[in-house]
Amino acid sequence: MNQAATTESEKDILEILAKHGDDQGGLIAILEEIQARHGYLPEDALRTVADETGRSLVDIYGVATFYHSFSLEPRGKHLVSVCVGTACHVRGAPMIAEEFERQLGVGAGETTPDREFTLQTVNCLGACALGPIVVVDGHYFSNVKPSKVAGIIARTREGLDEIEVETDERVFPLEVNCPHCNHSLMDPARPIDGLPSIRLTISFDNQHCGFNRSCLYGSFHIKSQIDIPTDTVLYFFCPHCYAELVSASNCTECGAPMVPMVLRAGGMMQVCSRRGCKSHRLDLEGVHV
């Protein structure tokens, strides 16, 4: 294995461990976090956890294998969870699971050789009224029939998050002002998605530059004068009054600060300040709390 990569991932594990401190009860949370970052629990990571926490490797292995949500094998790019709870079962979930097995050519709990899909069955996802339920990468499919399975797989390959900005009805333009000076942030001179963009100033790692993002709610297209590495948390400023744009509350997905902008039509829009995080909020009544 590449030496640099090993230390990199080890650093990662140490960071997670440091966050949880000496809290013994944190073991499950630690493993969950490792799995969230790596997709599974690599053997090296378990050894590091054992060394650092002073618990025996057997102990850690016991916990890692006791709970269903942990995987000791690398998982595929897409995770398909077929619910086999009672309500889904009586509505035909076993046939759905089999159809996925047939289409993907792997059994439940296995990963396709091309590492695209991992198939698993889960006991209950709690959306029992809409069964049979299938969840792919966090997207729920309800009332699934065997004949719909091929379509779900095809859509997953295309990308479930992809939105056609031009034609999608869920995408619409916003006009925003600075929450401090109320100056318009709209920038007709630098259009994105064919419309005036939103102009802001950003700062990170001692670098400052102009930054434009699409005014379309649902589009994440941006233009920045300097390249921004993914996961960087940016500081945003109004280009007119230079005040920092930062909300009282943080992103519910990643914990980074949210960036507020006032809607000219009334209300508030907030977007996450972390590059790559798509979290956003649109409140039509303004924001308290």
Binding site: Y140, S142, L263, G266
Partner: peptide, 27 residues
Amino acid sequence: GTCGQASGASDIIRVAKREILAKELTG
């Protein structure tokens, strides 16, 4: 809730917001 979102509630919320803003109905 999860079941609402599984049946498409997130999409109709967006359309509701779009319409309220487009027709200037906030408030």
